[in-house]
Nucleic acid binder design. Structure first.
Lengths: 195, 195
DNA sequence: CACATCTTGCACCGATCGTTTCAAGATGTG
DNA sequence: CACATCTTGAAACGATCGGTGCAAGATGTG
């Protein structure tokens, strides 16, 4: 059978992350996880612990991979708050367009959509959402937005981020997704009402 | 035990709709449905059929209740496309604020989020989404938008509608939801770039 | 080779899933 | 009252859920 591990732990975690990514939490059954990773039940439990723990490690794996990309998109100098929004959502669109990952990432909507997730997992998702919101606010402030604008646009960008995941999973075209993202970047701050 | 039905069929369907509304499809177990409706398993199956059929009837019940409200909000004369968006999203916000219904309606995101739903149920949800999109486009055209604007704003309003459901279920405040809705109504058409 | 260690496949656990069956009881009709 | 009809509660079905136990086999060390 085996004496040493027959698989790469990090690659297995990446695949498990994609299973949660694709199916959410409650519909990501152990059978789907074993099938998606290629691991047996024993290897899965022995390496990552139970399902809840594996989900949390998948969340960390997600953050480890994509957080730097978002951070890079937000850390550079931006001529306007709109540019911040556009840069952020562009990373999301690029991620969705990546053919090596599933459409429509449900990882960060799991806390809201899948009540089967335990409190610990929920708290982790919530922390990621709050962290993203804070990161966006800070970048918007740096781009010249006042406090109210920054809070408002960060919230709206968060909302757009969630809707992109939902629409992508629903099968909307990448053109439609790009249209939604572009429109979100055109939202004016409350100090700039429409003519 | 019983000779004639001990419950009101429409009220039971309304409650079953709220269970799907609150839990989505896969997490709305039969036990939760019997508890939510007060019916026994036999009564539930005998009256509404299996879970998939009950879900579809719940969708119809939803459309029957809320479609007229949306239709009314969109059918009146609107001074601008933004007013159409605002009027539509206001109905959504009112629905969310209704204390007699659960927060965060997952009925129309079920098709995307809950793969356990069968093809027939999925098609029905998809038809509702497409119908909403068409309804919005028509109202936007009537409010003076050109073809491109109407298509774009209808899509964005659809996206906002979905994000409101997700954010509401995630526990975001009604003030935050109102902020998102108001910002969506400020999205300018592509013919009106930012200054 | 002997042995301890680790991994793996497989069977199995109790719980819950959606669904069906069935007898007991309540009702309407004669 | 007799009888057909309908509804209801409860039990049970097979399937699947997340999770565990364990023996067999592969490895590294002596």
């Amino acid at each position: 059978m085996a004496g040493r591990k027959q698989f790469d732990v990090d690659e297995a975690l990446r695949r498990a992350m994609h299973v949660f990514w694709r199916w959410g939490y409650s519909e990501a059954s152990i059978d789907r996880l074993t099938e998606g990773t290629g691991l047996g039940r024993s290897s899965l439990y022995g390496t990552f612990g139970d399902k809840s723990t594996l989900f949390r490690k998948s969340l960390q794996r997600y953050a480890q991979t994509y957080h730097p990309l978002y951070d890079q998109a937000l850390s550079g100098p931006h001529p306007s708050p709109s540019a911040v929004v556009a840069a952020y959502l562009q990373v999301t669109l690029n991620r969705i367009a990546d053919p090596t990952v599933p459409d429509g990432c449900l990882l960060t909507v799991s806390a809201t959509q899948f009540p089967a997730l335990d409190a610990e997992g929920r708290a982790m998702v919530r922390a990621m959402i709050d962290g993203l919101r804070a990161m966006l606010e800070q970048a918007l402030l740096a781009a010249g937005a006042d406090d109210q604008e920054a809070a408002e646009l960060a919230l709206c960008t968060l909302a757009t981020n969630k809707s992109l995941a939902v629409l992508s999973r629903a099968g909307f075209s990448s053109e439609d997704l790009a249209t939604v993202a572009a429109a979100a970047a055109r939202i004016p701050g409350r100090r700039h009402p429409l003519p």
